[in-house]
Design a protein around this nucleic acid. Structure first.
Lengths: 336, 336
DNA sequence: TTGAAAGCGATACCAG
DNA sequence: CTGGTATCGCTTTCAA
């Protein structure tokens, strides 16, 4: 691999000049520039990014930490982030935290040891305190889907509360009053928020809560199956089911089918997230759209603006609003 | 950020010794090691990876280029690769090629300029010649799901031909003889291979091909809809449909539903890939399993062994075999 | 088992 | 507008 030194010799100029044309950050006479570029081309020169990083104290890399790399959700997250950074000549280093505290910390350390200029974190298990300390330690990062009040300026979130509200309100507006709920793991912040939104909608319509209509799932498909089965076996009857994410809604639909319950005629079901497979289900799933792509892009822009000082990026938005996507798994309550 | 120099001063040893304990690659007396480790801890020392890369000529990073970052397929690919490398202390840089020749080349250049030690490529648009040249140029890379004869030792593939064969043979064994086929874009190698497998199965059962039963799709869901619609409007009738991937199969199932065709009673449908949503469809999709996770892991091991000279990795396997996953979208042909 | 010193390939400041 | 040069933080001989 050719070095900048060889380029400078071939072009008959100094190291410094070659560096200037590479970075295009200082005036260089056109004729000189041409000579240098010709030399670079002739040698097939490609700058050594390690040397650049070392000398400039910039890695031009951003670390991304998500819970899982597979799954319908994080794919679009990564996709949008990569897209945004590629345009800016930055690259993206990825790691998975698997919703485990130790793994998340280790992954963050891993990314930091890689000298990333910034981190984009989607973490669930580490504590607020840890993150606050991380910030105090001078680590540049932005948080996705998590609100830490002390770190508010680096949080980009979805209004989960409102999403939960919309889901349940939709059922209420369809005439349903007996509404079951399968939540995510309640230690997760977003699961709690979504549930609170559900409660708010119930309260607004004067419907009192019934513990027999609540099931705590784990955001996985199987717990949707378990949830519906358990709820049906329980003391209360219901005509609508709100699930805290699409996976569980899908599981519930499968269970309903196996139990001989018609969706939506006998049971309306709504999900949350609007992941890609939501319209592969049968009937197609009504759900709450989580604009994860937009959120991801915003996180990337936060980094561009706050870390790389790009001034031409669009204004930042901290909170995104979910919206209802009505498909075929919910319908008006009709007398049976 | 503390440097190795400060650590050495605090520990009262030389730079070289600190380096030795960091890399653990030369004998260091235990007492000395302890002193150094204490100093590192006290300073919160983290090695500067750019400096390490520059001095050692190793980036400890691997570039991954896939067509898309989203979609059900590449997620598990990335997940397995990251997992394997993380264990080895390497990190992964990602890029998307979007099945576009110019973008793929550009992405490869991008990754190379990042001085990755190796590349794992899932490329469809660049030519064999380009790849051969890349190899000749000294770039270490392994190819996923693509066979370039001159580069056979760095290709890890699925036996697509056999997969296509299995799908169609399954239909034939169920008694079907009028079998329609929706292919992927025929400029893609895997699409062609799958189709050839289909042809082989037909030939084996003495069934002659009928052009009216062939539709060329684009691997996307919509072309499954278009395909089934076009085929039904065509001259020939059929009781089975083989789709070259699950997305198109899902589209075809939707179209069948809209046309009032019962699956599988009136029409058996089989897909290919066994992506995550295959069991969210209704009925659950019979398909050909593509062990993408295993293939990804193998690619990572190829790199560990051939680039990083790890000798303790399991033996390498170049070709993986698909297998039929029977679910509910296919059934025995019954007289109507 | 340890230390001294020569790079690795760029950047960026200071002169001219 | 261009050149010289110190420097970035670490690895890796070579000697001791």
């Amino acid at each position: 691999m050719a070095t900048i030194y060889e380029v400078s010799k071939l072009a008959g100029v100094s190291l410094a000049t070659v560096s200037r044309v590479i970075n295009n950050n200082a005036p260089v006479r056109q004729a000189t520039r041409d000579k240098v570029e010709a030399a670079m081309r002739e040698l097939g020169y490609r700058p050594n990014s390690a040397a650049q990083s070392l000398a400039s104290q910039r890695a031009n890399s951003i670390g991304i930490l998500v819970s899982e790399l597979h799954g319908p959700f994080y794919g679009v997250l990564l996709s949008r982030i990569e897209d945004e950074f590629r345009r800016a000549g930055k690259h993206v280093i990825i790691a998975a935290g698997h919703s485990d505290e130790a793994l998340e910390r280790e992954s963050i350390e891993f990314l930091r040891s890689r000298n990333c200029d910034a981190l984009i974190l989607h973490v669930e298990a580490v504590s607020d305190e840890y993150l606050i300390e991380l910030a105090a330690d001078g680590c540049a990062f932005v948080l996705i889907n998590r609100m830490v009040p002390q770190l508010a300026d680096r949080c980009i979130t979805l209004n989960n509360h409102h999403g939960g509200y919309l889901a349940t309100r939709h059922m209420l507006e369809q005439g349903h009053r007996a509404i079951a709920y399968i939540s995510g793991p309640m230690w997760k912040h977003d699961a709690r928020e979504r549930y609170k939104g559900h409660q708010q909608a119930l309260a607004q319509f004067g419907v009192s809560e019934n513990p027999a209509l609540f099931f705590e799932g784990d955001f996985h498909e199987t717990s949707g199956v378990e949830g519906l089965t358990a709820l049906r076996a329980g003391a209360a009857t219901f005509t609508a089911l709100v699930c805290a994410n699409d996976e569980m809604a899908s599981g519930a639909m499968t269970a309903a089918h196996d139990l001989g319950v018609q969706v939506p005629q006998q049971l309306s079901i709504v999900g949350f997230d609007n992941v890609n497979f939501a319209h592969y289900t049968h009937p197609k799933l009504t759900t709450i759209d989580y604009p994860i792509g937009d959120i991801a892009q915003m996180a990337a822009r936060w980094v561009l603006r706050n870390v790389y000082q790009h001034t031409n990026v669009a204004a930042l938005q901290a909170v995104f609003e979910p919206k209802l996507v009505q498909r075929d798994s919910t319908c008006l309550l009709t007398a049976l």
